[in-house]
């Protein structure tokens, strides 16, 4: 069984909400990434979304866009991101890692090469922001061969017809974008998320994690009441950017200090 599936199955069985944390590989300094990944797992993160930096991150707000810029200034690439996952797997064989990024680096590497290398490195899922279901067929085929889940986004604007198309090709979990906007936006509407999730639940068995606009324990708790998991990103990337001149351990600590209350908040929802 893929690590994502077993992780989310286990969480469901335990009545526990999954905490999904996003950081950008190579941001703010290359040596911070691996240290932070391990520290996040110790703090109770269930799934790591590792951002692959791109020169033109169109869906990102200013905070994560800056993270991409810092990572690229450190010469981070798709290749080096897979190398980090491989190293992570030396001592962690259970935490799912999802690569999140944009289509062009994967296009450049080639779908087949990407799938093989990612599979070898121990990557469990891929979320390509600008590769919607309609264009994802050829990449999906390659990912299936190596057992990598293709994570798709659902949005507030997604129609039921589109949702069915997406659910037909998605695996692992669905990532519901909680608001119309970029990452880190501040206008989360909990009621509308609950309504949407209720509608999606009727159409799919896949777990649904919710992201965009989750900043702290309160927003995470509010969202996770109806979701399988909460995705936290911008606040972590912001903290990492501010700690850029500190040691890898201190950068990791800055991230975990933010995650700890969120984890505790989610655990209050345990049934």
């Amino acid at each position: 069984m893929n690590r994502i599936e077993s992780c989310l199955n286990q969480a469901r069985q335990d009545g526990r909400k999954a905490l999904v944390a996003y950081i950008v590989n190579g941001d703010p300094v290359p040596e911070a990434t691996l240290t932070t990944m391990h520290a996040m797992v110790e703090t109770g993160v269930d799934i790591i979304e590792l951002g692959v930096p791109f020169s033109d991150p169109m869906a990102e707000g200013p905070v994560i866009a800056l993270g991409h810029e810092r990572a690229l200034a450190n010469k981070t690439s798709l290749k080096s991101t897979m190398a980090v996952v491989k190293e992570f797997r030396q001592t962690n064989n259970h935490t799912p890692v999802v690569l999140m990024g944009y289509a062009n680096p994967v296009e450049r590497m080639g779908y087949q090469t990407f799938a093989q290398n990612a599979g070898d490195a121990g990557v469990d899922g891929l979320l390509t922001v600008d590769l919607p279901a309609e264009e994802a067929g050829p990449l999906n085929q390659e990912l299936k061969k190596v057992g990598i889940e293709n994570i798709f986004l659902l949005a507030p604007t997604t129609t039921p017809e589109r949702a069915d198309t997406i659910m037909g090709v998605a695996s692992g979990f669905l990532y519901y974008v909680s608001l119309k906007g970029v990452t880190g936006a501040g206008h989360l509407d909990v009621t509308s998320v609950e309504e949407k999730l209720a509608a999606w639940r009727g159409r799919t068995e896949l777990p649904i994690c919710v992201g965009f606009g989750i900043k702290d324990a309160d927003t995470a708790k509010a969202i996770a009441r109806t979701a399988d998991g909460a995705v936290v990103g911008s606040v972590l990337v912001d903290a990492m950017g501010k700690a850029a001149d500190q040691s890898a351990e201190d950068i990791a600590k800055a991230v975990c200090d933010l995650l700890q209350p969120i984890r505790a908040g989610l655990d209050e929802l345990k049934d």
Binding site: V129, P132, E134, L153, A155, R162, V177
Partner: peptide, 14 residues
């Protein structure tokens, strides 16, 4: 060509 955008914009393009 094609449509390579994030999901939020796909319905607007349709």
């Amino acid at each position: 060509g094609g449509k390579f955008v994030s999901e939020t914009l796909m319905p607007a393009l349709e």
